[in-house]
Design a protein around this nucleic acid. Structure first.
Length: 401
DNA sequence: CCTCCACAGGAAGCGCAGGAGT
DNA sequence: ACTCCTGCGCTTCCTGTGGAGG
């Protein structure tokens, strides 16, 4: 065998028949337990195929409940059918995380509408007119705005698009907004709300039985036969169901479990791999979260981690294993000292408290108000995760900057 | 009982960066 | 290119809370 760098990896035995099918980019052809939602959407959108404007839809539900998958699926079917029959209807998918303003979304649209032309640097009103021009030719366009809560000027965007509709004699624009933020709707202007939410679909979380079915079907196509044990699927779906009912994390759990099985050369995915994968996935999320924190907040967390480690040194003599409880004031002092040492600017104690409560919201620390006992009214702070891991991660971050 | 301590967390305001309007 | 506006991170100031101590 050659000793090319990739030879070993290339010929290595794998547990997957197609690993790509376990990644979030993949939209499965069949979406179990979403027949009702698919039916609602397709029934409504079929109006577009008969050259009529359909109702605007607003879809919401937590991440990994199939909102995006369902919409993409319906859109793909509609586009295929329209092309085949030569109908002037098409769906366009836009992720608003990448295109997060009215102008950006409209320019993205005209690039899709007129792929041959180049529209660099045109004014907002020109772009808007161009969108209407396309509709005036009789086109029925379905515009999917995924993560619509990320758009800065949603009210203006929705207003522009729906009002444009009123001016059109033929052709039309149908909006489908997708959001996982449940409070988003309340932030909208009442007029925007009524025009965007002509129909609403709520995507409920999956329960354990549903997740199990989803995982079973996915492993059938993505894994080699007999690799994944039945009980491993049960465990993964139970874990994901109690966590969030999120299909994405359930699938990610199995993907990582598969990776681990390969790494350990066991080529079997059992409960053990799934449990190990859960720890790893959680760790990934936490370390990721830490690295996205602002610098000063990282310092605050570092101070907590260092203090917890110090106290552990003392307590190692005793039998106590759990992390020590820290006082808010004590942590602030250590933070100031640490920040001075690193020649960082200091934040006020008020903002420090703000950071503390944010860290708690992220689940990185736990705090309780000291009702009884020590120092009157203060917050008792406890680290949520392994102190040395957190410390290492932050120190790596600080050095990188 | 009152006062002090050590903090929690709300309200207002300040400086700044970046986008919109002209 | 210019000012104007707005949102954001943060400070300053303030009121509230509950145990400790005189």
């Amino acid at each position: 065998m050659s000793d090319n760098l990739f030879a070993r990896e290339f010929f290595k035995e794998t547990v997957f028949s197609d690993r790509n099918l376990m990644t979030p980019h993949y939209t499965p052809p069949i979406l179990p337990f979403r027949e009702k939602e698919i039916g609602l959407l397709s029934k409504n959108l079929s109006l577009c195929l008969r050259a009529q404007k359909a109702d605007n839809f607003f879809l919401y539900g937590k991440t990994g409940t199939g909102k995006t998958a369902v919409t993409r699926h319906v859109l793909a079917q509609l586009n295929a059918f329209a092309t085949q029959k030569g109908l002037l209807a098409a769906g366009y998918y836009i992720n608003c995380r990448q295109h997060n303003s009215k102008y950006q979304i409209l320019s993205k649209l005209i690039k899709e509408f007129f792929p041959a032309e180049n529209f660099m640097g045109y004014s907002a009103s020109f772009v808007y007119e161009k969108v209407l021009d396309f509709a005036k030719k009789g086109n029925q366009s379905i515009i999917v705005l995924d993560e619509i809560d990320k758009v800065k000027d949603v009210d203006e965007l929705v207003y522009a698009l729906t009002r444009g509709n009123d001016e059109l004699v033929n052709g039309g624009l149908t909006l489908i907004g997708i959001s996982n933020n449940l409070t988003f709707k309340d932030r909208l202007d009442p007029r925007t709300k009524s025009s965007l939410c002509e129909q609403e679909v709520v995507f409920p979380p999956y329960n354990a039985a549903e997740l199990k079915k989803i995982l079973q079907e996915r492993t059938l196509v993505a894994f080699k036969p007999l690799v994944v044990e039945e009980s491993a699927i049960n465990l993964a779906s139970a874990l994901a169901a109690q966590e969030s009912g999120d299909a994405r994390t359930a699938i990610l759990l199995l993907l990582r479990a598969g990776d681990l099985a390969e790494k350990n050369n066991s080529f079997k995915v059992t409960d053990q791999e799934v449990l190990a994968a859960k720890v790893r996935v959680e760790e990934e999320i936490i370390l990721d979260m830490i690295s996205s924190l602002p610098r000063q907040q990282q310092l605050v967390l570092l101070a907590i981690a260092e203090l917890s480690l110090q106290s552990k040194g003392v307590r190692r003599l005793g039998l106590e294993e759990e992390t020590k409880v820290l006082f808010s004031g004590e942590v602030y002092e250590h933070y100031c000292w640490k920040a001075k040492e690193l020649k960082e600017t200091l934040i006020s104690s008020r903002w420090f408290r703000q950071y503390i409560s944010e860290l708690e919201m992220f689940g990185l620390i736990h705090t309780t108000l000291s009702g009884k006992g020590i120092r009157g009214q203060t917050r008792l702070i406890k680290l949520g995760f392994d102190a040395s891991k957190i410390r290492n991660q932050i120190e790596k971050q600080l050095q990188a900057a």
